[in-house]
């Protein structure tokens, strides 16, 4: 379907003269095709960075839930705190290892909203209108957070502050910046980048970068 004998992983010919400079002492925390960006944190958004006042921010859980609910900035801070410590992976091939975020577990929000039995996917929506889709199972069971601090400091605006979602086991475009709403659905619907060629799930360990991977 594509061409020559280069269609399946493991059967591809090596690139002439390429040995790779850094992989001999590769960190096992790095998924395939990723490199360690060190202490940097590249900013990769496609828009004018919005200015969102925490006092006017809120997050809602809606769609297929028994109890549609929303929290203001102050209300969200009253919820049991939760922290993520670990790695994040961007589809543009950088990974940031050993970092941390603080906020609240998405489980806490969903527990309050009570998903209906038919709910199996979510759409995360940002205050900018950005959307990204995820299986419900990828944001439950301690796998996703809504966060307002990074390494103990307020989350910077360009990195999604005051509040973003993080789903660190998937490529980072799934971690919607400036999160404002999580909608539960009984079917999958593509979000913004997913409609534009990126993978519906985005598992970095199997390199689900683009549709068809």
């Amino acid at each position: 379907m594509i061409n020559t004998a280069r269609t399946r992983k493991g059967e591809l010919m090596a690139t002439r003269g390429f040995f790779g400079r850094t992989h001999k002492e590769r960190d096992p925390r790095l998924p395939p095709g990723q490199y360690d960006v060190g202490s940097d944190w590249p900013v990769l958004t496609a828009e004018v960075t919005p200015r969102i006042v925490p006092e006017r921010w809120s997050i809602a859980i809606d769609g297929l839930v028994e109890n549609p609910v929303s929290w203001s900035w102050d209300e969200a801070h009253q919820l049991p705190p939760s922290k993520y410590e670990g790695d994040i992976h961007c589809v543009t091939t950088w990974s940031k290892l050993g970092t941390s975020f603080g906020g609240v577990s998405v489980d806490t929000l969903l527990d309050a909203a009570v998903p209906k039995p038919t709910a199996s996917f979510i759409m995360a929506t940002s205050s900018t209108g950005y959307t990204t889709n995820l299986p419900l199972a990828d944001v439950t069971g301690g796998k996703a957070w809504v966060v307002w601090t990074h390494e103990g400091q307020p989350l910077p605006r360009e990195h999604g502050g005051p509040v973003r979602m993080i789903v660190p086991h998937l490529y980072f475009w799934k971690s919607a910046k400036w999160i404002s709403k999580i909608t539960l659905m009984d079917h999958d619907e593509q979000g913004f980048w997913e409609r534009n060629g990126y993978h519906d799930r985005g598992d970095p360990w199997t390199e689900q970068r683009y549709q068809g991977d």
């Binding site: 958004t45 919005p50 589809v91 543009t92 900018t128 209108g129 950005y130 475009w173 913004f192 409609r195």
Partner: peptide
């Protein structure tokens, strides 16, 4: 790339997307 656009979710943009190939 890999980025977050400021766009109403209803706006559909479709651009061509290619698969792995040889150049």
């Amino acid at each position: 790339m890999a980025v977050q656009p400021n766009i109403p979710p209803s706006v559909g943009i479709s651009a061509p997307t290619g698969i792995w190939t040889t150049a």
